[in-house]
Computed example of a mutant assay.
Amino acid sequence: MPLIIMCGFPCSGKTRRTEELKAYFEQHTDKKIHVVGDSALAVEKNAVYADSQKEKQVRAVLKAEVERKVNKDDIVILDSLNYIKGYRYELFCLTKHAQTPQCLVYCLTSEDVSSAWNASRDAEVQYTQELLKALVLRFEAPDSRNRWDSPLFTVLQDDTLQFEAVADAIFKRKAPPPNQSTQSQPLSSANFLYELDKITQDVLMAIFNAQKTSVPGDFVSVPGATEKIVLTSSVNMAKLRKFRRQFISYTKMHPTENTEHISNMFVQYLNKSLD
């Protein structure tokens, strides 16, 4: 059955809302409820979220566990930060591939409230203040206009969660049919879309800045690529963005497991397109 994705700042009430949802569905349905989250992994969150590689590994483990538990009969609740839009997109692809609905519950708090709640916890389960601030800065808020963030239920700290509306969203909506892009998406590669978006944007900015001092025929180095862009003429940003959109569309249909290859692939694509 469906996936409910929790989302919010650290110490924003996600686990409390997860427990409320679990209790509601246990009382009103005969479905089995699986809660997947950081707490089940017994990780030290200050060590994990301060290290990008460890954080990627944890996200991959959580997603793999969601993929393993999502089925036609049970409800899965993912209780984690889920603060990266690319990661939420991958979860959307996962549920689309499994042909089951999903929804997002966004626990909306201010940084001050989250900080106060964090300080009120026992010392051994607190985030450090520096890490909490860093995670807040990195947080990418969900947007209901994005299909992977919809349907979106935003709940403030004193609100009552819309249990019936959440139930309707996961029980009465048809699951989106799978398509080639979701079937091809490498679900084992955490945060693929986010990396694709960031790397290609960095390449564009490098080219744009290099053109201020280069002349036609120059070779331009870009971040993460061993190959260079050959600038046969000046290219405006609108044209570069067009090529970027085309490349992203193609790469989503033919993804690579190793994101380190994306820069070189994009350079090769641009050099062919700019000929």
Rank of each mutant, 00 (worst) to 15 (best):
F192I: 10
E195L: 06
E26T: 07
V235E: 05
K242N: 10
S39D: 15
Y194W: 12
P178T: 11
R16S: 08
P178L: 12
H261V: 11
G217P: 03
A64I: 04
K172Q: 14
A169S: 15
G224L: 06
E257N: 06
K172M: 15
I170W: 04
A42V: 05
K45Q: 13
S12K: 00
R138W: 09
Q99E: 14
P142A: 07
L78G: 00
N209T: 12
N258S: 10
L104M: 07
T213G: 02
I207Y: 00
Q201P: 01
G224D: 10
I262N: 02
L161V: 15
L108K: 12
V235T: 08
K69D: 09
Q157M: 14
R173M: 13
F9D: 02
E140C: 06
K72F: 12
K133V: 08
G37D: 05
L132H: 09
E124W: 05
L21H: 01
D122I: 02
T226S: 10
L156A: 14
A23Q: 13
I262C: 02
S184F: 13
N82I: 05
A123H: 08
R16A: 10
T109S: 10
P223T: 07
I84M: 14
S221H: 10
V155N: 03
K54V: 04
T213P: 00
I229P: 00
P223R: 06
P216H: 08
V222H: 00
T109N: 10
D218H: 10
M1Y: 04
F25C: 01
V43T: 13
P151M: 08
V125H: 04
E44N: 14
V76P: 00
S189L: 14
F163W: 10
N71Q: 12
F208K: 10
T232W: 12
K72M: 12
E124F: 04
R121W: 03
C11D: 06
A40H: 09
E65R: 05
Y87E: 13
Y106P: 04
E140D: 12
V58Y: 06
E130W: 00
D275G: 08
A134D: 12
T18K: 01
S12T: 05
K133L: 09
E65T: 09
V61P: 00
H34Q: 04
I207N: 01
Y127Q: 00
Y89I: 01
G86E: 08
L3Y: 01
V113F: 02
T15I: 03
D158A: 09
S115H: 06
V43R: 03
G37Q: 07
A238E: 07
H261A: 11
K32Y: 11
D168A: 13
